[in-house]
């Protein structure tokens, strides 16, 4: 564990909590992509199967359990409890365009041809693009509530900090995982446009809206 990874994990944790609180406090999931949330739940399910096979640390297990339960909690709030507020007309990104390439790529490019390993690889590829339905939704409506933009910023920052962690681990331990690194770079790059608008608008107290 190093400081970059810790900040990354906490940023991820913070993003999930912001989203849950936003939905809970406003009793509404308007502006949130249910499709991205389902993809994230699938990412956690396929990645954290090792919760039952490999023990790493208490921290590691607790975080995995939190990510899994919170992602199902979010889905429950969106698709059941506050279903009426779900903006499904704007949430139309075709997720098969993300699922199928991630699955094919996981079968082709992996560290080992083994069920758990392929599922882990699939989760890494899918996570890198899972935010696209959400970004697509924001681009369709042209704006986002500031709380949603804080959520997106924390979620994007998480993988960015992981990149710093991988650089650190490469120099300090000689450890590197090319699959995670390349997917993590793709994931972070997808947020760049959003980061730019967040910094130039939201942090100056303006509403998050796309340039006309």
């Amino acid at each position: 564990m190093n400081i970059f990874r810790l900040i990354g994990d906490l940023s991820h944790l913070f993003a999930i909590i912001i989203l849950l609180l936003k939905i809970w406090k406003t009793r509404s999931c308007a502006g949130i992509s249910g499709r991205s949330q389902i993809l994230f739940a699938l990412v956690f399910c396929t990645r954290y199967l090792d919760l039952f096979t490999h023990y790493i640390s208490l921290y590691n297990s607790l975080m995995k359990i939190f990510y899994l339960t919170s992602s199902f909690g979010t889905i429950y709030l969106m698709f059941f409890k506050f279903k009426a507020t779900y903006d499904r007309n704007h949430d139309t990104f075709r997720v098969e365009f993300l699922l199928i390439p991630s699955a094919v790529l996981a079968l082709l490019i992996n560290h080992e041809f083994d069920v758990l390993e392929i599922l882990w690889t699939f989760s890494i590829y899918l996570e890198s693009v899972a935010i696209l339905p959400q970004l697509f939704m924001v681009s369709k409506t042209g704006e986002a509530e500031s709380i949603t933009s804080h959520y997106l910023f924390a979620l994007g920052a998480y993988r960015g900090f992981y990149i710093l962690n991988w650089i650190y681990r490469y120099y300090s331990e000689g450890f590197y995982d090319l699959i995670a690194i390349l997917a993590g770079i793709v994931q972070t790059v997808l947020y760049c446009d959003f980061f730019y608008l967040y910094i130039t608008k939201v942090l100056k107290g303006q509403k998050f809206s796309l340039p006309a």
Binding site: D9, H12, N60, M63, E117, N165, F175, D177
Partner: peptide
């Protein structure tokens, strides 16, 4: 490298 397969990151 066994290390890469024991995914210790989240």
């Amino acid at each position: 490298n066994r290390n890469t397969r024991l995914h210790d990151e989240l």
